[in-house]
Amino acid sequence: MDQLYGYSLYGLSLLTFGGIYAMLALGLNIQLGFTGLFNAGIAGFFVVGAYVSAILSTAPSERHIGGFDWPIPFSLVAAMVVSALIGWAVARICMRLRADYLAIATLGIAEILRLIFKNETDLTNGARGVSYIPKPYESLAQPWNHVMMTVVVLAIVAVLYFMLERARKSPWGRVMAAIRENEDSARAAGKNVDRLRVQAFVVGSAMMGLGGGMMAHHLKFIDPNAADPTTATFLVFVMLIVGGSGNNKGAIVGALLMWTIWSATEIFTSMLPGDLAIRSAYIRVFLIGLMLQIMLQKFPQGLFPEKRLETGSSG
């Protein structure tokens, strides 16, 4: 009975982490999937959102600036706004770049952002991180605190999903698809391609900031290590590719599935004896890489192939 209860709580944790990653994957889907913008700096927007929401919502503290005691919904909105503003600046600068140049530039920007949070000790407490971040419904008794956190995360994911599906089917989404498929003809049809791309980038960045904020509240603690590129950028790419780039449902399923695989594999590898258990931690990473390769080669469309819309405007 205890065991079953334990599994249920772990299931909730998988849904919570997976749901937060789904926000990141949905953000990436707008940029990469819909519009073809190769943002390899997810960790940067993630860490901005996490710190903004953390610092605004915590109680005043001597360790870092403020502690402004904002209610969580407001701090999350602020996290989205700040991430969106940074996304706008990045987009204005980098939008002309071709796919891989954009990837390298955004990867570099994410590193610079992480360095800022790490070095500006007076503002962020530097490498020592921000503690006591409030968590939604944490005062409820177990298991209801976990249940409500999961409900909040999944509700946000659901809202994002419906908004994105509407956007995708709207004229705006059709033009985005048209730009990705054939930029020149979209331009020829009189669309302001650069402006639309900036819009997609900004919306995606805001969602990554939201994901970062939710992560900070879930962990109740944030430090610059949480913006490690392996788990904050590359893992999100794997999620979107496995789920199906261009498909919102795919982004969500990919995030939940890959997080489950990433997390649950350890339950088995930790049963290995002694030294092997330690080394098998590396094998997990190897398997993630291998899985990505297999998906790319055998199922390039992912689990949920993109549903092509009739893009009348691009002809």
């Binding site: 334990g6 599994y7 709580l9 772990y10 944790s13 982490f17 991180g129 992560m215 879930h218 962990l219 603690f221 944030i222 430090d223 290590n225 949480a226 490690d228 788990t231 997390s263 350890e266 339950i267």
Partner: peptide, 14 residues
């Protein structure tokens, strides 16, 4: 990494 710390804690506890 605090993400991994929380996940690892959840696994061993639950």
């Amino acid at each position: 990494d605090p993400k991994a710390g929380v996940d690892a804690g959840t696994k061993v506890v639950n």
